[in-house]
Structures are given as structure tokens and as C-alpha cells.
Design a protein around this nucleic acid. Sequence first.
DNA 1: GTAACTGTTATATATGTAGTATAACAGTTG
DNA 2: CAACTGTTATACTACATATATAACAGTTAC
Lengths: 132, 132
Amino acid sequence: MIIQLDMQSDVPIYNQLMNQIIEGIASGSLKPGDPLPSVRSMASDIGINLHTVNKAYTLLKQEGFIQIHRQKGVVIQPDTMPGITPEYQDKRNAYLKPIIAEAICRGLSEEQLLQIVRDMHNEITQTGEENV
Amino acid sequence: MIIQLDMQSDVPIYNQLMNQIIEGIASGSLKPGDPLPSVRSMASDIGINLHTVNKAYTLLKQEGFIQIHRQKGVVIQPDTMPGITPEYQDKRNAYLKPIIAEAICRGLSEEQLLQIVRDMHNEITQTGEENV
DNA sequence: GTAACTGTTATATATGTAGTATAACAGTTG
DNA sequence: CAACTGTTATACTACATATATAACAGTTAC
């Protein structure tokens, strides 16, 4: 699990970290039950503070993507991954709508937009295949 | 042009305002050359500060969605709308990737995801038709 | 038992962004 | 001249981000 952070980005570090772990799960490079580094080692590995990692882990735990045990440490959700909740749908649509609206303004056709989503979907699901 | 703001949202007000104007353009309820309220009247209409509106307008101007004239006031871009720039593509993909990754984790199939995009695309482009 | 690790909590600080408030300037319009 | 326009400057509050240091409670290995 290689974490790449952009310190110049307007996206908060804890958010980038969350996204990369979620992308790791989506790609299959992180499988249910797989361990994640401790907050301290992850923090020193990527050169950030302990609390920033802890914030990302805590939020991922709240959303159900990981489990945190005193004994086993932090592991990718081994049981059932979080499903399609109404809160998730609302949040997803809220984030998706402005992106689609801007794409329309800039002249992207519906089919072009769908192709971008297809490409990105394949890019994610095929990335992890090599690492199996 | 009815602006609906969510003061409890984690999305900044100036950002919500930008998004709604962009959605207005995408839906066709705001057409090239259409005037927008002055920063002061828009601010008092929706009950926020002058500078928050000004920030949204200034950013929309920088991206090319509106024009600001001393004489005519603020109008929707009457000439060519901003196109598909490399910066836009990078930003769009950066925002799109985490959404798709989370959808995959939560068990959405590629086709389900595409259908959501189709639905939202139609929802936006058909909303404005009534207001023509 | 002690040492080294785990997540967790508390506190403090620095920095940047968001939002408001007030004021003024320069240009346009009626 | 009066009333509007966008624009700029300044000041302030509030909050989020990120770091730093420290401690606590539990687990694991020697």
C-alpha cells in the first residue's frame, strides 16, 4: 500500500488518505481482513502527524470500511462492507451533481461523460489485478 | 433563479452558490447573456454577506462562466463557454475518482453507476425545459 | 515484570479558510 | 447630484486543518 499525498492540494491530508485506502479496497489491493499500519508507523512513513492518520482511521471506522481492535490493530472490514445507505446516496448525489453540471456547461455529451466514468471504473478495478 | 443554500452543509456558501449558477447554466434556465443580480442585491436576497457573493462571482469569472462589466453588471458568458482544458480534466478526475471508488466498495455495479449518471444528467438537462 | 507496542484522549499552538461587518473608491446611469 | 455598479481594504470572529507533546490503558513478547 503506497500512499501518495499532495501537500499543495486543497483536499485535506486526512481526506486524501481516506480516499486512497478506499481506492485500495475498490481496486482489490486491499482485501477484507488485511492489516493497515498503526497510526504511528503510517504517520512516520508518509511524514505526517499521528493525529492526522488517526482522524482518517476514525472516520473510516465510522463509515464501516475498517475495524479497529486493541489486539489486532487496524484491519480492512472483514465482514460485510458498508452498503447503499440513504445517507450515502444523498452525499454521493450532492458531490456528483456539480461535476455533471459543469461537464454539461463545458460541452461534454452524455455519452462522453459516461465513457469517462467507464474508463475510470476500469482503471480502478484493473489496477489491483497486478498486485494479487 | 432561485438559490437554495444549506447553512449546515460542509460545502462553503460561495461554493454552493457557484454550483447552483453552473447548474442553472447546464439546465438552460440561465442562458448566455442573461443578467445576474448585483453582489449587493443577491447578498441581501439570500441573506448572506456581499463578499461571499463577490467571491463566488470572481471565481466564476476566472473560470469563464460569467462576465463582469462596469456597465452591464454581471452576465452569463455570452460568447464561448469554457471548454475542456487539461486543468479542468485533472480537477474533474480528481473529484470523480473517490466517488467511483466508494461506489465500488459499496457494491454498486458499473451499470448501476452509469445509470445514476444518466439519471442525474437527464434530471439536470430536463429541469430547465419548463422555464423556457 | 518490564519493555515495546497498540489505539485513545487531552491540551496547546500555528495556520489558513470562511464568513461577516464597515468603509471607501471609481465608474455609470438616471 | 443621487443612486447604483464592481472593487478594494481592513478588521474581526469562528472553525477546520495540522502539528506537537504528553499521558493512559490495554496487549504482546522477552
